[in-house]
Each structure stands twice: as C-alpha cells, then as structure tokens.
Amino acid sequence: MNLILGIILFLLMISIDKKRGLKLFMSLVLNFLILIILFSLIAVGINPIICSILACLAVSYIILFMVNGDNVKTRTSFVSVIVVLMILTILIFMMTNLSRIAGFGYESLEEINMFSYDVRIDFTEIAISLILISLIGATVDASIAISSALFEVHKNNKHLSKKELFQSGMNIGKDILCTTSNTLLFAFLGDFMTLVIWYYMSKYSFLDIINSKTFVEELMKILFSAIGCVLIIPITSYVTSTSLLKENSK
C-alpha cells in the first residue's frame, strides 16, 4: 500500500513541475537516507544529541542549498537555523530532563513487550534528539519563506533602512505563524486521536492525562516545533536584513 501511495506522490510531484518535482523527490530520498543513518548511528551507541544536531545541519543544508540553490537568501537562512538550533537545544535539554519524558509510557507497553529493556542506551538523550529532528523541517521552512520574501522587499525598495526591513520581516513572519501552527497542530492531532481513544477506554481523568508520559511527550514535541517556528521569525529577519544591507554597502 505504501508503494502505491509513493508512486502516486511521485507522479503528482512530476505533474506539477518536472524539474522541481524530481529534485524534491531526490531530496526526500536523501533526507530519508540521512534519517536512517542517524537512527542507526544512535542505535549503535554514538551520542544521540551530537548525532542529531549534525543531522539537523545536514538536512537544512540539503533543503536550503540543494533544493533552493546557493544565494544570499539560503545562506542567511542557514545561519538563522543554526542560531535557533543552539537556543532550542539548551531549552529542550532542560525540559526533557526535568519532565522525565524519556522512554515509553504505559500506553506503549503492549507494543514493546516483545523486546528486552536491557539495551544500555540513555533514552533521555533519545527523547532530546527526537524533538530536535522533528522541529527542523518546520523551522527551515519558515526561515526560507521569510528570507526570500525579505529579499524581494529589499530588491524593490533599496532605500529601506535595516529597522524597516526587520519590521517587514516580522510582518511576513506573522502570516506564516498562523498557517504553520495549523499545519503542525493537525499533523499531531492525527497522532493524538489514537491516544485519546486509548485514554477514553482506560477511563483516564483529565488530571491523569496531563501527567501521563506519552501525552506530555507528544505535547512537548508540538510545542518545541512551534517555538522553533516562532523563534526563527525575529532571528531570520535580523540576520537577513543585516546581511542584505551589508551586501549593498560593499
């Protein structure tokens, strides 16, 4: 069934635009390979946090430079993504350690009971890297949207000051915020549906749910993806407006 769906997806991509669709499909395959390599490296026992930060960088490199080409827009986006990643890594590290969302909750016990739990790998670090990688796509997406829009603004209005450019970047960002938060929300709601049905059947109360590991973990994943999207707006606006004006004065 997945094969058929994959073929449909490929055909749709090609039908929109041959060159771009092919490129996109290739980048997805490449991203998938990176993901699998990352998963395997973590499973072998290499530090998950370092691995996933490197994977995030590789992925943003592919999305930005391979799909969108090497130019001022993508370079400023890349820098902004790195800054956001650094800030978020610290925040995620703190929150994951505090709320102890590592490992599996009661809900998944049935799914994992065929495995032995003696695996000697710290699942706290795995939870951190999971959150890190799941936010990278949305963050890069928001970043490139802002930097290319700002680039257009700058091209058409060369006289704009840095402050004005930054402000228009923030305005564009506000529009993106609304749509991206919706995309993320629904992607996670789909997952949530099974969980909520499970909670209902196990007769969980509201208080039980907000303290349960699986629920908190899922919610943190959404929130961090969303926080990544929010943080990238001012940072990209700042970096792009600075570098555009620098380029101008050269």
Partner: peptide, 21 residues
C-alpha cells in the same frame, strides 16, 4: 510543495526513533 513536504517529513518520520533503537 517542497517546503511543506519537508515539514511533514520530519514531524512524522522522527516519531519512530525510540522504537527503532
């Protein structure tokens, strides 16, 4: 289409990491 598919790609496909390990 390229940016949006990337958003979904990572939000969905990462979820399997703990079980994979």
């Amino acid at each position: 289409m390229s940016t949006m598919t990337n958003v979904l790609f990572f939000t969905y496909l990462c979820a399997g990491l703990p079980l994979f390990v």
